[in-house]
Amino acid sequence: MYFPYFATYMAVGIALAIAAFVWALKNGQFTDQQRARFLPLEDDAGAGEVKRSRMGRLEILALGFLACAGLAASAAVLVFALVSF
């Protein structure tokens, strides 16, 4: 007997959705949609430029080498696979 689980699931979901929709309707959430388009823009936190340092460059080079080694390993596996078959 499994229908009660689905009925519960769907009923709870639909009830929550309807309750939220009615709440939104009564609270004017569907009015003034033009202003709503701009809501993310009302705060404008900027980010600074990337600062470069000698240490930073060396670290990036080392990590780049590490990543390239990973890529080379991938390529090696790929070539091995292609040659083997």
């Binding site: 949609q33 388009r37 701009f38």
Partner: peptide
Amino acid sequence: YVVPKAIRAPLYSHTLSLLGFWALIVVYT
């Protein structure tokens, strides 16, 4: 959130976004 902020332009349509939201809630479950 990210796309309008990054391009400093408003969302194309907030009404359409809400339509998508409620449609998702209705059909995805």
